[in-house]
Design a protein around this nucleic acid. Structure first.
Lengths: 342, 342
DNA sequence: CTGAAAGCGCTAACAC
DNA sequence: GTGTTAGCGCTTTCAG
């Protein structure tokens, strides 16, 4: 697999390498015919500029690193699609690395990428990431970083997040409107702002409607099906079955539902449940799961645009972009059948 | 973000750049203390070798490209994890690109990667890929390619596949053992060998047990939930409801189940169904879906090892590695409750 | 408009 | 053992 270089083309045509180079970067003066001639010959010979050499020379890579904690759920793959669709047409390559929810591996990933000279990193952190010293250092060095979804407040880079508060509020209010009163929240890992915001939305909705709120309404769970199962099982064991559940995300909701069904507790009649996207399960589970839909694809596009702007302008003013979503009304939260359409 | 180069380190210590280089590549003679001194200083200065420059010089990239048609289902992410876990410790970077099931985009992805000088490509093709001329060219140029899962017979590169025939045979036989007689197969896209092999396994199992086989037993479907829905709806519309279904994969099976449930057809009593992994739905759907489990993670590891071997030995003898799986017995295919354990 | 030449950061002969 | 030097393939002054 030997590469035909600019030299080969130049020799073949008896011109200088710089001329060939110019033909390929049309920002220089070059006679039209020369240019055409060169491009034609180059194509004939199967010449492609070697991006590695370009990168070396220009001290930039045209690579963007994307670091995600996992891509087994639907959420991150969708975001990545959005990122790719913005970046690829702009001539960037998207290097994806996944951290397996381990902050050490995540750190290694980021170091590899930075060290391999990506021009910037779009990242969503792992559940257990606490030590941000290396990221702070990158921040200080002015290295372009955009956080999304799982963002760390400590890090002052640009962020793209979902309007978790509002939609958690809305989701909870929806349950209240359905007549559920004793509502609990399966909460997420507390180092993520989205956990805090969804919890706050939940609490404020209860308060607005003068429903009793106490710490016992917040059930520490997590973001996997297993977490949801575990939390629900605990509730059942402690004879503490609520009337409705607002889950931190779909997998947690699904886990809870699986346990409820095992225990013959009827959804939505005995208990109502609302999730928060991040899976493709909501239409497969029975009853179908009411959920807050996040604009994953758009989140990716937005993050890509932000980093592009930071890289190309070389100006970094940390901004936090907050996206809105939509509500997918399904069966798991609607007691009166007539209210549920389609 | 300015890079400290080998020169800076050399100057700082009053040694030659080659000495610094040698300190970092311990295959040359170099005095222990010099080496220690250099490494220490380098660390102090925050020096990291610039991989881009290394790549240019050595004409290799230490990058492997992975091209997948999608990563919304569980299958490819799992395979990628396996690939990464082999390649990263060996000093390679894994560049993932997804083709969105479009062969044009797939081709562009591969060209980008080849052109960006990855050392090799691990690929699973999109549903509609027909034109293999470019891939043939790469093959001729001896460029390392390993196909997995969705392989094209026309391309004579190394392949890592699942033993589709045997397990399809087994899955079908399982349905027969359950007493189902009129069994149909929801078939996959015909340009993939796995479709053909699973179909053949299905047919041969019917034949072995002297069950009637005719073309009407093969229902062209596809590999998505939508495909499964569509195929099932057609069967119902034509009043042609079989006793059991062997689906090309889980999403197709899930689609069929959703339609069956809509139509109040009982699974597994009225109709039995078996899938073929490729999703995480099998435990979420009700009844839980019996399925053939493919060793996705191991498939990734295997593909990674094959390409590593081809790259590092520079010998390419196309080999096809066939992996075995396991059978996940669940509720969707077992009529007599007592037979189903846990 | 085009050619010559320097240099991006690194490695690998080849000297000494 | 270590230094010198020639490139890897490209862009970009600087001349002409």
């Amino acid at each position: 697999m030997k590469h035909i270089s600019i030299k080969d083309v130049a020799r073949e045509l008896g011109v200088a390498v710089s001329t060939v180079s110019r033909a390929f970067n049309d920002k220089y003066d070059i006679k039209k015919e020369t240019r055409a001639k060169i491009l034609k010959k180059a194509k004939e010979m199967g010449y492609h500029p070697n991006p590695i050499a370009m990168k070396l020379q220009q001290n930039r890579t045209l690579n963007i690193g994307v670091v995600v904690p996992e891509f087994r759920n639907a959420f991150f793959p969708d975001v990545i699609c959005g990122i790719q669709d913005v970046l690829i047409p702009r001539g960037y390559q998207v290097l994806i690395m996944q951290s397996n929810e381990e902050s050490e591996r995540e750190l290694a990933n980021v170091k590899t990428l930075v060290n391999s000279m990506v021009d910037g990193i779009i990242i969503s952190f792992s559940t257990n990431t606490e030590d941000t010293s290396y990221y702070k250092e990158l921040e200080r060095k002015n290295f372009p970083i955009v956080q999304f979804n799982r963002v760390l407040d400590k890090l002052k880079t640009s962020k793209v997040v979902f309007d978790d508060y509002t939609w958690a509020f809305f989701a909870t209010e929806h349950l209240i409107h359905q007549g559920y009163k004793n509502i609990v929240h399966l909460a997420g890992p507390k180092n993520f702002s989205f956990s805090r915001l969804r919890k706050k939305g939940f609490i404020d909705a209860l308060k607005k409607h003068n429903l009793h709120f106490g710490d016992e309404k917040i059930i520490p769970a997590g973001i996997t099906i297993e977490d949801g199962k575990h939390a629900m099982q605990e509730l059942i064991n402690s004879q503490n079955i609520p009337e409705a559940i607002f889950a931190i995300n779909d997998p947690a909701a699904i886990g809870a539902m699986l346990v409820l069904k095992e225990n013959k507790i009827k959804i939505p009649d005995d208990i109502g449940i609302v999730g928060f996207s991040e899976s493709r399960f909501s239409d497969v589970i029975e009853p179908s799961l009411t959920t807050v839909q996040q604009p994953t694809y758009e989140m990716g596009q937005t993050a890509a645009n932000v980093i592009l702007q930071e890289i190309e302008s070389n100006i970094k003013i940390p901004q936090t972009l907050t996206l809105g979503g939509s509500f997918k009304l399904k069966k798991s939260s609607v007691r009166i059948a007539s209210l549920y359409k389609k």
